[in-house]
Design a protein around this nucleic acid. Structure first.
Lengths: 332, 332
DNA sequence: ACTGCTACATTCAACGTTGAATTAAGCCGA
DNA sequence: TCGGCTTAATTCAACGTTGAATGTAGCAGT
């Protein structure tokens, strides 16, 4: 399996030129005669030469490779985000490699330090455990862009962050439920511990929309969770229903929660959307074929990826801090 | 942002020792006195030294980094597989970086060649467009392990492949439906074009189980699809129902198809599991909170990842060819 | 014949790290 | 006192690539 590597020098020896000339052919740099170029290309083909990227990067100082560090790929939102990032980057002739941190502070710091990552040009991270001080105290030689709401807090004014306006998005989603006739709108996804930025922003938007519509904010309609996944969504709805709370609308802080909620509503025999209208967040693929269907907030994933890559391409052309990308409502 | 890199030489100069001694401290190699070690560690902390991985790999010839190339992260099966791989590898002190090829032959070949990948020690790939000749004709200096059914064909006897016995798994799943009382079992997921290995194996298992139970194989109960996703699953069921086919069991060739099928069954007013029992494949997280619930075949993901990493760790200790890992049925 | 130019190709050194070989110093026992 | 052993640190070269500097023709122009 592990045959010896073919190097520039091997090609050079075979053709009878210097390694540098071969390098020039490979990189289309310098002056190379047509005849020599041809012979070199033939030799490369015959011997199966592949540039050693470690050596190239060591010399050049850059690799054209970016890393995307996410809490988990098991959550569809992150998996789909990763998918979009890779594709958008591919169109730009960049490679994005995806890494999974588990949302663990230590592993996120490791990613920042480039521990166990190959030499990369830039790091895109959606942190969960990271603290602002972790970013501030270490000098980096690569560019960093943070995404996600926790990332926004960590970034502060000193680092790049890209994301949607969560408060506005949650307010728009809530307003839509109200427009559809809901008057008692429950919410699922309030978090009381850990990185709660997302939760808080979305709750703020929810509260804002209620206030603007002159509806009361009822603590009994607030479903608390530990994490944003189906299991927690199901349990939260179960608790709400058992507590005797009555509601005709349900704002879930992401689609996984919404899918879990639909499950629990189904078990309880509550029909969607007749008895309860459900709204989610993230527009993940699972939600598109959910039965019954529910509406959701679509963050502009392509827009996000493009914005991030713009910043990575020219980190100093953009002032650090928060950069906003648009969202939209998907009604089903 | 891009501050100058701190090198071993910088640390060495500050402490007043040779770079090699600093290297020894960093790698716990060679003999270093307690006092010098301490001073070096302090300097490393103060200056924020981080080893240059490109240089290290160039010198060492290996990086401890593996790449996992998948068709897409947008499909939950692959995303969850990636998640498991990263975690299992992390436990073994290895890094797995995930790449997305789109199932495109050219991009899969690029991955094989290491184009636009940082220097890595091993490649794990679930191919879709790749051909056996692509693998055979290029000499590689890294170890390769293929996964997935198309990968099994590409691997042949000359390359490593790890996977479950799809025929047996599909047969077991079908036998379970029969044991639950189903007599007319439809199937969804037969493919007529592209990389159809998965589809064929599962259909063979389905046919085998029917034969063993003395049940007829009815072509009218066969749902054809182009891809394994929710949309196709929904459409396939719709077609089956509209064709007038009657069935009390439904074997879907993966969970995404099953979720789409459930959607279509729901729209048609067919109740699950009363009127139709549904069985899927892959045991993805979405399926676990599906309403109504359905059973599925769980491939041993951890077992798969561990087997693959065993092989990568010692590629020559294992004969190339197919290596099997167990599956199990998850009944809901 | 001399200068200056163009087109090609080469040499040299360096990117940062680390195995292998070497040196240096301290200590022990004969 | 000498050789031999242990501990500690060093020097050297090389991993494969590529910028910068340099060399060498051949040819045009004066």
């Amino acid at each position: 399996m592990a045959r010896a590597r073919v190097t520039l020098a091997d090609i050079a020896a075979r053709v009878g030129v210097s390694p540098k000339t071969v390098s020039n052919v490979v990189n289309d740099s310098g002056w190379v005669g047509a005849e020599v170029r041809e012979k070199v290309l033939v030799a490369i083909e015959e011997l199966g030469y592949r540039p050693n990227l470690a050596a190239r990067q060591l010399r050049r100082g850059s690799s054209g490779v970016l890393a995307l560090a996410l809490p988990t790929l098991a959550e569809p939102y992150f998996a789909e985000l990763a998918s979009v990032f890779v594709d958008v980057a591919h169109d730009r002739n960049l490679t994005v490699l995806v890494s999974q941190t588990g949302g663990d502070r230590a592993r996120e710091v490791e990613a920042l330090d480039g521990v166990r990552l190959p030499a990369i040009d830039g790091l895109i991270m959606s942190p969960l455990g990271l603290e602002a001080v972790d970013v501030q105290e270490r000098r980096r030689d690569i560019s960093l862009v943070l995404v996600g709401e926790h990332g926004e807090r960590v970034a502060g004014d000193g680092e790049h962050h890209v994301g949607i306006d969560n408060v506005a998005a949650a307010a728009a989603a809530t307003a839509e439920l109200i427009a559809q006739g809901c008057r008692r709108i429950a919410t699922i996804g309030v978090q009381d511990e850990g990185p709660t930025e997302t939760s808080r922003d979305r709750f703020d938007g929810y509260a804002l929309a209620l206030r603007q519509a002159g509806l009361p904010l009822d603590e009994a309609l607030t479903g608390h969770v530990h994490e944003f996944n189906r299991a927690e969504g199901a349990v939260a709805v179960q608790r709400l229903v058992e507590s005797g709370a009555e509601f005709d609308g349900l704002l879930c802080f992401n689609d996984s929660l919404a899918l879990g909620a639909l499950y629990a509503l189904g078990v309880r025999g509550l029909s969607v959307p007749e008895q309860v209208r459900v709204m989610g967040f993230d527009d993940i693929a699972d939600g598109r074929y959910s039965m019954p269907p529910f509406s959701t907030v679509a963050p502009g994933r392509e827009a996000l990826a493009n914005r991030v890559l713009d910043i990575i391409a020219a980190p100093d052309a953009t002032a650090p801090g928060h950069h906003e990308v648009p969202f939209s409502l998907v009604l089903r």
